[in-house]
Amino acid sequence: MKARVFVTLKSGVLDPQGAAIGTALGGMGFDGVESVRQGKVFEIEMGDADEATARDQLDAMCRRLLANTVIEDYSIELG
């Protein structure tokens, strides 16, 4: 089973990297960009665990390592 985990900054947390990317996009002529927030995607091969077990494991992975829940949110996609 393949999982995708998305880790993004919580709203309200300052994201200077996202802001710098937004400024660069504006400088390249993309006028429509109002704001940019950057984050991470993890693609994880989970073997043949059933979906509920995999989801539990992925949730624990996020809480313990993949995300810092002080400043980051995460979401899990299985498929």
């Binding site: 200077p16 710098a20 810092n68």
Partner: peptide, 16 residues
Amino acid sequence: IETGLLPGVLMRNATL
């Protein structure tokens, strides 16, 4: 901080 012994987080410098 990552072990949880101290609170908060250290992020990329605001100046980048």
